[in-house]
Design a protein around this nucleic acid. Structure first.
Lengths: 160, 160
DNA sequence: GCAATAACCTACTATTTTAGTCAATTAAAA
DNA sequence: TTTTAATTGACTAAAATAGTAGGTTATTGC
């Protein structure tokens, strides 16, 4: 079982989409700027999210990504599954052949744990997260920052 | 957050100790044979378990390891923590400085998840596991197998 | 039609972690 | 005094993570 920045980035990006994508598509460049995630890395993650039908893409100027379902119909567990294989805690992937074709001593414990984690993350939708006070506050902070971009950025081209 | 074979091996080995270590110390060679875990790798894991005061060692012939506390006072979460750093799901390790010194959009979600996992694994002791029917059955199977070692093993020395 | 935008795709890479192996040393019991 | 078994440290192959780089394709506004 693994939960690393890959899964965290994916959930963060999807939440950003949920927060900003109500009227028009959101570009990965926007998400990259607000959430400090590498654009190229976001592209890889969104390729998986799209294959798993969690987002729809719109190409061309003004394009970007939209959620493919309503916010209250997309759950955190799905997002992590889409980029991360699974939140399974067993070594055998649930096939119960952990020790030479037979079940190992702690198999059932890891099964129980997997159910616990999956149940928890399956109960949280993007809508739930958007409603949270802390999320609103942090989003407001991020929006304020991205509307005042650092003026130094326009100089970097001239420096080349 | 990571839960890989390292943590699973550690819990399995500790459970083996709980099952077989009531009267005398259990050697890592015994655990290695019953649980199919590399002896050298077990040595690494038990060095950490000993540093975290979960086991005591007895050197010399007939030596091995014992639990340093009663079975109902050792919890799965402690074992994983001992070998695995932690079961923390946040990227910042709980310090809430995930995004340029400030809290990131999904920080609270990962905190909640960490609490969930830790709560679950802190509620399960080695005594709880020993009592489970499936664990008893699997342990019986493993004991039967290790009492009838494959005769081929005595030939390997002669083959060299 | 043309330039700009932004998704899309493929391949490559540095770093870290995992899951070990190997060799040597130390302590205790028989 | 030999054997057993813990203890220590260094080393390694393979995999996963967290990217980077460079190009192609589709769409829009001018």
């Amino acid at each position: 079982m693994r939960l690393t920045t890959k899964g965290r980035y994916a959930v963060t990006a999807m939440l950003d989409l949920a927060l900003h994508g109500s009227d028009r598509p959101v570009s990965l460049a926007d998400i990259s700027g607000r959430q400090d995630i590498s654009l190229s890395y976001l592209e890889q993650l969104f390729a998986k999210l799209r294959r798993n039908e969690l987002v729809k893409s719109v190409r061309g100027p003004g394009g970007g990504y939209r959620l493919s379902r309503a916010r209250d119909e997309i759950f955190v567990a799905e997002i992590i599954d889409a980029v991360n294989e699974s939140v399974d805690a067993t070594g055998c992937g649930g096939t119960a052949d952990c020790q030479q074709g037979e079940v190992c001593l702690t198999h059932h414990l890891w099964c129980d744990l997997s159910k616990q984690i999956h149940g928890f993350l399956s109960g949280i939708s993007l809508a739930n997260l958007v409603e949270r006070r802390e999320v609103k506050n942090i989003a407001a902070r991020q929006d304020a920052r991205s509307q005042n971009p650092a003026p130094a950025e326009t100089l970097t081209l001239a420096e080349l």
